[in-house]
Design a protein around this nucleic acid. Structure first.
Lengths: 192, 192
DNA sequence: CCATATTGATTGATTAGTCAATCAACGATG
DNA sequence: CATCGTTGATTGACTAATCAATCAATATGG
């Protein structure tokens, strides 16, 4: 009525509201009306900006991925050695931001969604590719040729597995979580 | 109409139908009517036997867990050495049964569900406890005291992480998947 | 004839998505 | 500078569809 936000503002507000709503319900099973209500606008406006519900959910996922990516990139920028690069990736994966209730809910449901939604699947593969490529890049100077991709695959799976378990506990990741992965990495590096 | 099945028969048939339906849709988002229709009965009958939809879904989950457990127990029974016990657990976790479309859908959604449903969460924790306990038992003779639980934790997370990635590829687990975990185990064992 | 299986019909609630109408901002035009 | 028109934001009211759950009625077998 009185105030008209810009398109970008409203999109951001709706995505933030979606996250808050997801956080509260603990699942992606939220209605457009709930999200819109929380953002202080009508449900129709959400459709105006995102086309349909899937568009809004998808945009929320992309927001989370972008946030994660930004944290990792910033960490990598500061890393001086290959080993520090790996640590940066680990710190990004297990930082407190990744354990907010909404983030956890979104990630877990995201995995489930990836099977039935082509769109979600593509986004998830993108995350996997990026993680893999970052790890390979950091590993290349540390291990013989050919080993980097194998170890990166294992690290990726290990990270996801540990995240899964930590996330399900509903608290921030314990330091032991990162420690376990680093111990594995040390074992691999010591072989060469 | 004409024939009346026993309660147990009907329950089994409905659970089987639920799995087939989940398999086709790739998610737990199936309606009672779809499941009942596939089982050749009316939706009302599903409510008669399972109380509500949640009851039916939960029973389906329990069925999958029981199936998994049976495979592992059978494998453990045949295992002569501690190392063979671990291999049996791995073969159970990555056997072809675990990669049917319906099983994968159920597991992934199950993880997501565990956050918002107390019932699902309890079931998932039960799976975790059993896996952990089996692994610890197999590891005890192989490593110094105190190490068994740490390594079991890591193996559990690694298994889940690898399963996640293999499952998302939509095929049976590659032999390399089990191989990666065994390599990690070898590294840990060689330390002692 | 009793218990249980089974269903058809129905309801009540929820929800995504649509649409026409209103409102505010802003620039162009005479 | 006043006016008008265009554009985009915004909403309320509505629709159409879906679905879980209920229940009374019927069938069946022991």
């Amino acid at each position: 009525m009185l105030k008209a936000g810009t398109a970008e503002m409203r999109r951001r507000a709706l995505i933030a509201a979606a996250l808050r709503e997801i956080s509260e319900r603990g699942s992606l099973d939220v209605t457009v009306a709930q999200i819109a209500g929380r953002a202080g606008v009508s449900p129709a406006l959400a459709h105006h900006y995102f086309g349909d519900k899937d568009g809004l959910i998808h945009a929320t996922m992309r927001h989370l991925l972008a946030e994660f990516r930004a944290v990792v990139i910033e960490g990598l920028r500061r890393a001086a050695t290959p080993r520090a690069r790996i640590d940066a990736i680990l710190r990004g994966s297990f930082g407190p931001e990744q354990f907010h209730r909404a983030t956890v809910s979104a990630w877990l449901t995201f995995y489930a969604l990836a099977q039935s939604s082509e769109r979600a699947g593509r986004l998830l593969r993108l995350y996997h590719r990026r993680l893999h490529s970052n790890l390979v890049h950091a590993l290349k100077p540390l291990v013989p040729a050919g080993e980097a991709t194998r170890i990166a695959d294992n690290l990726g799976a290990f990270i996801d597995g540990v995240y899964l378990r930590e996330a399900l506990r509903g608290r921030l990741a314990s330091p032991a979580a990162i420690g376990a992965i680093e111990t594995y990495l040390d074992l691999e590096l010591r072989r060469h």
